[in-house]
Write a protein that binds this DNA or RNA. Structure first.
Lengths: 263, 263
DNA sequence: AAGTGGTCTAGACCACGGC
DNA sequence: CCGTGGTCTAGACCACTTC
């Protein structure tokens, strides 16, 4: 409930009546701050296509009038939207819907990458187990040396062609659900985020080149010695906890990593 | 000159005298906004080591008092510093100096990378020329197909060991200075930024794995067929102009690319 | 309880952009 | 010229943390 508060010192004039007496009657809908309501109103108009990139957004003064708030509050709403890249402000001209941003260096699972290319991810499970002697990987995950780790080894397919071998490790005690999910059809990311209540946030990756040993060569149907891109990623949750460790071997020519780096 | 302005409506009380009459006497130093002065004052105290990470920064009310500004102005100063990651705000507790941020995915030249590891970069120039028939690379740089391109091929050394082969291309007409700089001792980045007045901003990179052909094997003193990490980068200026195209072949085990990706 | 940041008011003057 | 965003005032009440 937002009752009327905010009566500055100089409101000791009789005009304080302008706060109409809807206090108990209309539900003022949650304790959402006014500036956030304004933001949401604008976001909705953008999402619905009513406001397109380049279109002008109502000015500070207009928003203040429409929503019945002070200039500073309307201003705060627009300033934050600009900081988040939703709108662009041009001094003396106005506030405009920003062109949609392409996200760089975005952390995606294989399933999501394929989906973003309009393809369906398929996998073949090579092995699925619980291991206890992976000291180094346990250490990377911030677990004791002999922690029980879930381990999943999958061959990634594009069409009928094997393009990658991925091995994942996670704490078997914290995420038992992963052990029994149908991982040949399901995304590891989606199980974690939907079923385990983990919000993934970022991954630190080490990238180098190696070549296929006999086992990899067999699994990927390649000659032994073929160069492979190796990506080791340690994936962190939004609470900065190391959650999954993945090592992937990607067939050259079938997989190029694209990143953008900033100065 | 900032004279006293900002006399809101309710300042018709006698208290407006509190603006002490220094108007013409002390030089108010530039037209820098008050909130920026506050920010600079705090930044200086952090840079000089007087304020260390975790230390508390003066509160909004304190800053307002010290600098003789209103609460909203002091608040604005801190809010922006927090947005830039300089300080962290904790509701009910205070504002604190943020721990120094490690920069991820930072675009660095080889010379700079070595410097950041406390090492000195060395290179051996393999060839330096101007070419006119690299249609594909010219296209990447946004130039006509037969544009004159500067081309520089260098072997990168760590100690006495060859760790990488890098080939750079740029517009020979726009940056003639690059052709005659002592590139065995100098950074391409520093020549561009210092001598050519170009501010580099970001690079789009394509990363995959390949293996050494006979020529690379000879130049890097490796067996033919050794897996190499290939990084092709198109480097853009702050005006979003493609400026340099670099292809690098990095010896595995001697070079691991580290990046962070966000969800 | 004291102090902090978070939200908000009802205005002010200025610098800038486009007509 | 008029409308826009940028800076700023002198306060207010609230939610939160710390003691």
């Amino acid at each position: 409930m937002v009752f009327r508060k905010n009566l500055p010192a100089h409101a000791d004039t009789p005009e304080r009546l302008h706060r109409n007496g809807h206090s108990a009657t209309m539900a003022n809908r949650s304790d959402e701050p006014a500036y956030r309501k304004i933001q949401n109103a604008i976001r909705r108009r953008i999402d619905s296509g009513q406001l397109k990139p380049g279109n002008v957004v109502p000015s500070e003064r207009e928003l203040a009038r429409i929503h019945g708030v002070s200039l500073m509050t309307a201003r705060h709403a627009l300033t934050e939207l600009a900081r988040d890249g939703i709108v662009e402000r041009r001094h003396g001209a106005g506030t405009f819907v920003a062109p949609p941003k392409v996200q760089f260096n975005k952390l995606l699972g294989y399933t999501e990458q394929m989906a973003s290319l309009g393809l369906t991810a398929r996998s073949r499970i090579v092995s699925s187990s619980v291991v206890t002697r992976e000291h180094e990987i346990a250490a990377r995950l911030g677990l004791p040396p002999t922690a029980r780790l879930g381990r999943l080894e999958r061959v990634r397919l594009a069409g009928d062609e094997a393009v990658a071998l991925e091995v994942c490790y996670w704490s078997a005690d914290e995420y038992p659900a992963l052990q029994h999910a149908p991982m040949d059809r399901t995304s590891l990311f989606s199980v974690l985020e939907r079923d385990c209540g983990v919000q993934l946030a970022y991954a630190d990756e080490e990238i180098d080149a190696t070549d296929a040993d006999q086992r990899m060569a067999d699994l990927l149907s390649l000659p032994k010695g073929t160069p492979l891109l190796r990506i080791r990623q340690l994936i962190f949750s939004s609470t900065a906890r190391a959650t999954v460790f993945v090592t992937g071997f990607y067939r050259s020519g079938r997989h190029t990593l694209r990143i953008r780096r900033f100065r």
